[in-house]
């Protein structure tokens, strides 16, 4: 059945994501920090498109189109992360360091970690994956209470990690 994982488990499988128009390929990830959009259902929504200064994300009309992203234009600035009402976007950087990658994801819980804290990173079903180190906490006014946390973590868990366990 189509999108079986999303519609039974609650979150999409990697396979379901790879079949969506916005999900990056291995090649795209080699470029540097890029936005990853896990939005694979046609819902009426386009703030990702309107928030992007680079014009990298396209939804078009009708606004229920799935978002598409041009990774040649995306610079991984992260403006779309807090703009997405569905909290379905994060920035991943495979090129962050030799052994480590960086993820910047939306987080709307308390308490917040501090920069330098070691946190437990989790996958799409909330499963614990590995530890990571908080490198940045972005809580500017434009985020409107959607905090964007940046955490570095071992590269071998690159595709699985999407968030952190709540503290």
């Amino acid at each position: 059945m189509e999108k079986q994982y999303l519609k039974t488990i609650g979150s999409p499988s990697l396979e379901e994501l790879k079949n969506s128009p916005a999900f990056p390929t291995e090649e795209d990830y080699k470029k540097g920090p890029i936005a990853v959009i896990e939005c694979i259902e046609e819902i009426p929504c386009n703030p990702c498109e309107t928030s992007c200064f680079k014009g990298a994300i396209v939804v078009g009309k009708p606004i229920t189109n799935l978002p598409q992203i041009d990774f040649q234009k995306c610079v991984g600035c992260g403006i779309c992360v807090a703009a997405c009402p569905g909290l379905a976007i994060y920035i991943k950087d495979y090129t962050y360091a030799e052994e480590e990658a960086l993820i910047s994801f939306p987080y709307e819980y308390l308490p917040l970690p501090k920069v330098g804290d070691i946190v437990t990173l989790a996958g799409r079903r909330g499963e614990e994956i590995c530890e990571g180190k908080v490198t940045k906490i972005n809580n500017t006014k434009v985020n409107n209470h959607t905090v964007v946390l940046s955490v570095s973590f071992p590269k071998n868990n690159f595709l699985e990690v999407i968030t952190m366990k709540r503290l």
Partner: peptide
């Protein structure tokens, strides 16, 4: 007491 004192949005 079950009051919500701190809230991430509010």
């Amino acid at each position: 007491m079950t009051r919500i004192i701190e809230h991430p949005i509010l």
